[in-house]
């Protein structure tokens, strides 16, 4: 491993670990679920992605780099999906928002029983139903 590459890999690993620490700080210090999720998902993805990038740089091998790139792409693609699913579920659970929350644009727009947004999404669903 050349000294330049190893130094670059070490710095990338350090920055990734710092971002993971920032995510953990956010998850402890932020006041409600959605702000915690904002810290954990974004900073956590960046931290893990940078650490995988450090591996790709350090090995300087096409196969390893391809696997690391696949891992990074997977993280970047799945983290928003997972956090959206958790945030949606938590909203239906009636999780309390921070008391200084300015606006809740979803308030009153979700049918609590069908979990469908009204009215645009309901019309979309009705359009696909057979005519009675």
């Amino acid at each position: 491993m050349s000294p330049l590459l190893s130094t670059l890999a070490g710095v990338l690993a350090l920055v990734g670990a710092i971002f993971a620490l920032i995510a953990a700080l956010g998850i402890v210090r932020f006041p409600d679920l959605l702000t915690r999720m904002h810290a954990a998902t974004k900073a956590g993805t960046l931290g893990a992605g940078l650490l995988l990038l450090a591996v790709a740089v350090a090995f300087a091998d096409a196969g390893v780099a391809a696997r690391a790139a696949a891992g990074i792409a997977f993280l970047v693609l799945t983290a928003p999906v997972a956090s959206h699913a958790i945030g949606r579920a938590a909203y239906f659970c009636g999780v309390r928002l921070w008391e200084r929350t300015e606006v809740d644009e979803l308030a009153g727009h979700y049918d609590p029983e069908t979990h469908v947004l009204d009215p645009a999404e309901a019309e979309l669903h009705e359009r696909h139903e057979p005519v009675a």
Partner: peptide, 20 residues
Amino acid sequence: PDRVVALDLIGFIAVGFIAL
């Protein structure tokens, strides 16, 4: 839900540990 988010982040940190 807070615990689920924490578990999610633990997954990311574990990925980082394995990369290290």
